[in-house]
Design a protein around this nucleic acid. Structure first.
Length: 326
RNA sequence: CGCGGGGUGGAGCAGUCCGGUAGCUCGCGAGGCUCAUAACCUCGAGGCCCUAGGUUCAAAUCCUAGCCCCGCAA
């Protein structure tokens, strides 16, 4: 259904809520428009990095650099948080990867509600890690959706949606960067349409909804009984974080680059345990899986640097038949 | 002081516990073999063993301090 345009006699008062890198281009897009960004909400600084030093989230840094007031509530549901937002008197709140579920009072606060930038083609891949799961599950397309926020996670009416084709070498990192930009563009488009009175909202098809749960590090552990195609998809999806990994003699080995080998290098009559080294080549290590084999091309052993397999093999005694994953 | 691994010719590693001529797999150079080769053989060059102190007749190795790289965790 069409959404009536706002009062055009003044710029919109906007509050932006976001935390990580993904949200930065969207904030940037808002700042380059004529609207007035009266405040930015980001998650609190957290200890991170190798020495657990307190670090500001990227959105906070960006907002600081552009002289926009930043608010970092400890509790999104606290009364003071709502009061603070109310003081800013936003016409509309724009959310991009903020990282917390917004409670009803906040959703109802701005006259025009809250809109969200989501990195999937909703209703598919609702949830925290839509970018990575789209690749891990072998989708041919992904995209971004600008939606009106509702209490149910990522279930609000769709305002603008942009699709993108996934490349054969698409990784979680590359798609993240693309969709961050695309999301910012779609956001700008949505705002422009809104001001022209041409924005319309269409409900999501609940029957087609699917979910992309938050990534856990264990999601990266390779199950060698899976088929090589699926494993390769995970290698790409989880690059650069949390990375697909296996074990080499008890030490964690990240698989950062791989391909699928269709060759049948062993006799079908001789069963080879998934995870076994089937071939040692100049450009890759061929590993048995549930179906076909995985050609590992780039690895990183825990504590060591990322290396192409050719370099990795020079200092190590990798033999045919060696089992990975144990 | 969050936990842990590491810095050794151009690359990747061993040697460090138990001080005593610095080694392996490659790469590089020259030559040979071959119809041919990212194949094979021979020879060769290339190292302030991260830095600064200390211990010792003697330190890559032991002690102290520092710098840098990386994994976990977040």
């Amino acid at each position: 259904m069409p959404i009536p345009p706002p009062d055009l006699s003044r710029p919109l008062r906007l509050v932006f809520m976001g935390t990580p890198d993904f949200a930065v281009p969207s904030l940037q897009a808002l700042l380059t428009r004529e609207e007035e960004v009266v405040g930015v909400v980001a998650q609190p600084d957290k200890p991170s990095g190798r020495h657990m030093v307190l670090h500001a989230p990227p959105v906070k840094k960006y907002a600081f650099a552009h002289q926009v007031p930043v608010f970092q509530p400890q509790k999104i549901r606290a009364a003071e948080t709502l009061a603070h937002l109310r003081d800013w008197q936003p016409d509309l709140i724009v959310v991009a990867a903020y990282g917390k579920i917004l409670p009803r009072p906040i959703l109802d606060l701005p006259p025009y509600g809250c809109i969200n930038v989501h990195a999937s083609l909703l209703p598919k891949y609702r949830g925290a890690a839509p970018i990575q799961w789209a690749i891990a599950r072998g989708e041919t397309h992904s995209g971004v959706t600008i939606m009106k926020m509702s209490e149910q996670m990522d279930a609000g009416d769709i305002l603008v949606q942009t699709q993108v084709e996934l490349g054969d070498n698409e990784t979680g990192g590359s798609l993240h960067d693309k969709l961050a930009i695309l999301g910012a563009q779609a956001l700008g488009e949505a705002l422009a349409l809104f001001k022209q009175g041409k924005l319309s909202a269409s409900p999501q098809n609940e029957a087609a909804a699917s979910y992309a749960p938050m990534l856990k590090k264990e999601d990266g552990q390779i199950n060698w009984t899976q088929d090589a195609v699926s494993i390769e998809q995970r290698v790409r999806a989880f690059y650069p974080w949390p990375s697909a990994y296996t074990y080499l003699a008890g030490r964690r080995l990240k698989i950062l680059g791989a391909g699928v080998g269709k060759e049948n290098v062993f006799a079908p009559s001789v069963p080879v345990a998934p995870g076994s080294v089937l071939g040692i080549e100049a450009t890759h290590l061929s590993i048995a899986t549930g179906k076909d084999c995985l050609h590992i091309s780039t690895v990183q052993l825990e504590g060591k640097k990322t290396l192409p397999i050719s370099e990795f093999l020079k200092g190590r005694n990798i033999v045919l038949g060696l089992r990975l994953g144990i």
